[in-house]
Write a protein that binds this DNA or RNA. Sequence first.
RNA 1: GGAGGAGUGGCCGAGCGGUUUAAGGCGGCGGACUUGAAAUCCGUUGUGGGGGAAACCCUACCGGGGGUUCGAAUCCCUCCUCCUCCGCCA
Length: 451
Amino acid sequence: MLDIKLLRDDPERITQNLRDRGVRVFDDLSSESDWASEAVARLAEFDQRYRELLSAADDLRREQNENSAATKAVGKLPKDQQAAARKPLIDAGRALRERERELSEQTELAREARDEAWSRVPNLTHPDSPRGHRDEDHAELHQWGTRRDFAAEGFTPKDHLELAEALDLVDFAAGAKVVGQKFYYLVNEAVLLDMALQRYALEVARKHGFKLHTTPDLARVDILDGLGFNPRGESTQVYSVADSDLCLVGTAEITLGGMLADEILDVERLPLLVAGLSHCFRTEAGSHGQESRGLYRVHQFTKVELFAFTVGELEISEAMHERLRDIEEELFQGLGLPYRVIDIASGDLGGPAYRKYDLEAWMPGRGDWGEITSTSNCTDYQARRLKIRYRPEPVDGKKQKPRMVHMLNGTAVATSRALVAILENYQQADGSVVVPEILRPLCGFDRIGPR
RNA sequence: GGAGGAGUGGCCGAGCGGUUUAAGGCGGCGGACUUGAAAUCCGUUGUGGGGGAAACCCUACCGGGGGUUCGAAUCCCUCCUCCUCCGCCA
């Protein structure tokens, strides 16, 4: 959620940002050409109405307080005068209470209407993020590594599913039977490879100063809300647990980000770097048919997530964002996987992200790049709702007001996607797969197959 | 799962219907004393929201939510969390 003051001080900035991102906020706007201005005008009306009601309700509460004080003062009068003096005050107090209740209720409804709409307004967008919403609008920043020339090697590369099935590394049929489509079992060496990837990522994270965590795989709905995930509605990406306010997490970003909700941190703790290992559950609603083969898009996978809390200054959080991207690159360079880095276009950033980089590995089986990791700077957008603040250093000996932290997340490794990239890039002509050198000590073998 | 007990400011802790603008202490900050420090003494101290150019004013907040009352930290209901004991369990 953005600071509501931005709506009052710089509505044009919000309007332009809605246009850049293609976020309509309301789905019943009449104007096709200027829906963004219309949306901002409606938000401003909501805010105005709330503030008027709040002001009126505050006035009534002040009257109530004055009335209580007056009633209390009656005790100082001579005994025989008290009852007569108290009676009109109590009657007045009763009337005030009735009006105050009514007005409070209206105020609360107005606040909910405003906040509900305001929370759908996405974060501001980095000036350098490319504008647009099509795939080709993303900016490729650079590439790393050399893609193998399979023609020169004399064979046609298989995709990871063919390889995995031939090597008996994955069982989708059993997954479908026991849970449903897009669930799977890892089998044989894939189990160890999966764990080696986790171990590798955790060690790199630790080396860079991240405090390691295993995290809960469920979280409360308000934590999801705070991080900008929408646990409700038809297009939700998360599973909800029946008869509870819990959801299966789609990423440890949720549990790592929620850890410090409602806290005011000492500035010495920042930047605070945490890493979390968790399972990730995604409904993939609306994505049927896309990338449907194999491990690329599944309902459950395992991930090591990097998370950073920094002071609320853009120069600092942007530097941290570059650092997270560097760590992601280091991880995939270590695995020897060719990749490219993408600066995500405005229309494709999630609501909370101010800027987002994706790493896309080359996937020979698809003959295309495929997203393997992603890192976002969410600035103070998530912190505001989660109430994660810090106390800045005193200025001229004066204690400073708490400020919102900036929050950033990045994938260290999502094992399913990493397995896709490894199987496809390290396949051999005989159908076997060589294990990336850096994982060998963690796996205990250097090749899978041929079988 | 059962039975008790407890949640109060940055921390500890009193208060259990209107002298509380939340006592007292610790910590923090400022000052006095001191060559300096310690000790001592004095003052000060939270968060959100609304209004205001500002000084400042108003309002809310004693685990969350709801209720009773002219008035709630205090009484009632409900949920959450923690502690003690019992049972069960990997």
